[in-house]
């Protein structure tokens, strides 16, 4: 074991981790925003809003992420007429893909709120906007936070796929160092440890929140 290889290349590798965080954060923000829009569309009673959103969600949930990354990377230059940077292309691919998952989490969250809650709110004279904002969303949000955190953990892991279009994020940099120094066991062990610490922290938070929520409901 030569752990020195990690210390020697620490700066280079951690620089990749920063990029990984950047990718994950932008994806989560964009994915949540787009997910809300899609979820609302999925809950709409108007067929011309409901069907396109449903089609979109089924479509992207039916594809492997790596295909979407490749595909959009080669598609964008054709559409916009000039090459697009790997970073922007990756971010857009992630957002477009993850929004489908976020949308389903949020739709389920909204539908988990009992129908009687909306009736009660309407019967007191609240408008549909007020009913959604004050009564339905807060309850839906509480129900979906654990799943949202889970999905964020998955996104964090998925960002490693950005290497296929040449982005030097965390795992790719580990890979590059290995190519130069040939210390696979140590380097990948280190990478695994970093992913494990970050992701299990996320899972732990999600689990805690879930327990707290269930506790509140049944005590």
């Amino acid at each position: 074991m030569d752990l020195d290889v990690i210390i020697r290349n620490f700066e280079f590798i951690i620089g990749g981790l920063a990029l990984t965080f950047q990718l994950a954060l932008l994806t989560v923000v964009g994915g949540l925003f787009m997910g809300i829009v899609l979820a609302m569309a999925r809950l709409s009673s108007r067929p011309w809003i409901y069907y396109p959103a449903t089609l979109y969600i089924h479509f992207f949930r039916g594809l492997p992420l790596i295909l979407v990354i490749f595909w959009l990377y080669f598609l964008f230059p054709v559409v916009i007429g000039r090459p697009m940077g790997a970073f922007s292309s990756a971010i857009i691919s992630f957002i477009v893909f993850e929004a489908a998952y976020f949308a389903e989490i949020m739709r389920a969250g909204m539908q988990s709120v009992a129908r009687g809650q909306a009736l009660a709110a309407y019967s007191s004279g609240l408008t549909s906007y007020q009913t959604t904002y004050y009564v339905l969303l807060p309850q839906a949000f509480r129900n979906m936070v654990p799943s949202l955190i889970n999905q964020t953990v998955i996104i964090f892991q998925d960002t490693s796929l950005a290497y296929v279009i040449g982005l030097r994020e965390f795992l790719r940099r580990v890979n590059l160092v290995d190519a130069r120094e040939v210390r696979s066991i140590e380097l990948y062990l280190f990478a695994a440890l970093v992913y494990f610490i970050i992701c299990s922290t996320g899972s732990l938070i999600s689990h805690r929140l879930e327990k707290k929520r269930v506790g509140r409901l049944f005590n």
């Binding site: 809650q117 009736l119 009660a120 709110a121 019967s123 007191s124 004279g125 609240l126 509480r142």
Partner: peptide
């Protein structure tokens, strides 16, 4: 209809209090 409903109170079998 919102104004009309605001003048009519309704009580439900399962209470429907807002849990949050």
């Amino acid at each position: 209809i919102y104004q009309l409903r605001s003048t009519i109170g309704m009580v439900f079998q399962h209470f429907e209090l807002y849990p949050h």
